[in-house]
Amino acid sequence: MSASRSAVPFTVIGGFLGAGKTTVINQILRGASGERIVVLVNDVGDTPIDPELIASRSADTITLTNGCICCSLGDEFALTLPDLLELSPPIDRVVVEASGIGDPGRIAQYGTLPGFALDGVIVLADCEGIGRLLDDGRIGHQIADQLRRAHVVAMTKSDLATSDELKRAKARIAEVVEGQGIPILEISNGQIPPEIMFGLGNDHVSELAAATSDSSMFTHGIDVQTVPVPAQVERVLLDQWLAALPEDVLRVKGVVNLADDTAVVVQKVGPRCRITARPDRADEPRLVVISITGTEFSHPDW
């Protein structure tokens, strides 16, 4: 790994068997649009990938025509992770599929190791099946733990459920994750808006500010709003405002110049918020808030 390279964003997709992880992964690979994404799945042989996307395949690796790679994560996955940083051409992003019973929060910890930057844990829950799973006396507690480890819970197959079923499922999930600041998003066809799936290193999102007036470019059900940021902000006010945001805020990202002449980058996904120092002051400080449509939050009074 060259010293100058920035950390590779690391995303975890969790959820029990049948939650729709494979569909989501196919959508990620299909929509990669120029990014070289490595997707680590439980078993490549069990992951149907659009045939027209496949450039070559071996027993445990599929190379795609768009430069992405899909490979099986072996038992030594954590030990071989640094090898991904040596690949040429360099990779832009890692997405890891957690096993159906595994703890996605545990896997996310590998995204904090040198060379990587944890970008989010998305846990999928099948609208139709989640209630039954949570009620299962044998594994219910582990399913609940998976949901609590999410930064965002995505309710899959929402188009196949009646509005009553959807409401019930959402209430069950909300009950499990109550008080943890975890937003619950409804999706269909495995489509998680890229601006939610990926925060770090997503230039598309960093240009959102200019585009928020044209909401048609964003996914239905998602609001993208720009929050005005003055030339200087007291750090404590920034922290307070972030902490007070409602649960339905999916991501916040931006740059802010602080009152002590330093500048910071803000990255928030669900309950996880990172504020890191930036070497230079930002020319155009701004904060972009991505939330579930209709979410109301107070603009800061700084």
């Binding site: 029990f16 068997l17 159906g100 019973i101 044998r138 594994i139 507690h141 582990q142």
Partner: peptide, 11 residues
């Protein structure tokens, strides 16, 4: 807590 399955029982 009651423990952690490494493989779900049905699987």
């Amino acid at each position: 807590p009651q423990g952690l399955w490494q493989v779900p029982p049905d699987r």
